[in-house]
């Protein structure tokens, strides 16, 4: 098959793998429930804290951040364990021997996980409205949706990078768990970066969700989200490139040492 023809089939492959994995995630009662309930628990805690003293603007800030936390949770824990999960399911070898590059298969899986995170975001916004009476006004709906889509894709790319970066760690899910709280802090989901120690800011700026969250907030407030969106998209592409290189390296290593299927 010519290179051009193979490239032409990529979008269909991405779509099929994304849809297939989304359906697999949907049949897991545990996964589905926890993806929705887990961020809700922390959102509830945070909103209960904020509603005591904070004004309306801070509550809206916290609600948007709490809603987006679910996407990070879906990435940090689930994506970190992505390759291990394939190993345990006995499908890793099949993915590895397929003529399609490993990265092209892993990316839509991460995207499916981020899509579930979006569902959790919707649930949190609904919860904030019904239980706490907080409605998030969206001044620029088109920019808001665009910011959301770019953020979700960038987070999926980060998830992809994470999945290949921690593949040597056997209990990658535990490592992913640990990343959950620092991610919420570093990306400014609930707390402005100005409240964090100064040395943290450069780390935050290297994380696409920081820019994505800024773009979401700007577009909701009717500001200019484009600069933040550009940084978010750029960092996402950088994650994809680095992840692609790492995935090739770990794959070659696993083939050389015959460790693909070792759990």
């Amino acid at each position: 098959m010519s290179r051009l023809k193979r490239l032409g089939r990529m979008p269909r492959l991405v779509l099929v793998v994304w849809w297939l994995h989304l359906r697999m995630l949907a049949v897991s009662a545990f996964g589905g429930l926890m993806q929705i309930v887990w961020p809700l628990i922390f959102a509830t805690s945070a909103l209960l804290m904020f509603r005591v003293t904070a004004d309306e603007q801070v509550l809206i800030y916290a609600t948007l951040g709490a809603a987006a936390m679910g996407i990070w949770s879906a990435m940090a824990t689930t994506a970190s364990n992505m390759l291990q999960a394939q190993r345990w399911a006995g499908t890793l070898e099949l993915i590895v021997v397929a003529p399609t590059p490993l990265a092209v298969i892993l990316l839509p899986i991460a995207l499916a996980m981020a899509t579930v995170g979006m569902a959790s975001m919707g649930a949190t916004l609904l919860w904030a409205g019904l239980v706490f009476g907080i409605t998030v006004p969206v001044a620029s709906p088109v920019e808001f949706v665009l910011s959301l889509v770019v953020t979700v894709i960038a987070m999926a790319l980060l998830g992809f990078l994470l999945s290949v970066a921690v593949v040597r760690y056997r209990t990658a899910w535990a490592l992913g768990n640990v990343l959950e709280f620092p991610g919420w802090l570093l990306c400014g989901f609930l707390v402005p970066l100005t409240l964090l120690p100064g040395w943290v800011t450069p780390i935050s700026y290297l994380l696409a969700p920081t820019w994505g969250m800024a773009a979401i907030r700007e577009s909701a407030a009717g500001g200019d989200p484009w600069r933040a969106l550009l940084f978010c998209a750029g960092l996402g592409l950088a994650y994809a490139a680095i992840g692609g290189l790492i995935s090739e390296a770990v794959l070659n290593s696993a083939r050389r040492h015959a460790t693909v299927s070792l759990t």
């Binding site: 805690s45 945070a46 804290m49 904020f50 005591v52 003293t53 904070a54 801070v58 916290a62 709280f181 620092p182 919420w184 802090l185 609930l190 707390v191 402005p192 409240l195 964090l196």
Partner: peptide
């Protein structure tokens, strides 16, 4: 750390 910083922001 997470809740301490959230608490600082909320001023609670």
């Amino acid at each position: 750390l997470l809740f301490a910083f959230v608490g600082r922001h909320a001023g609670l």
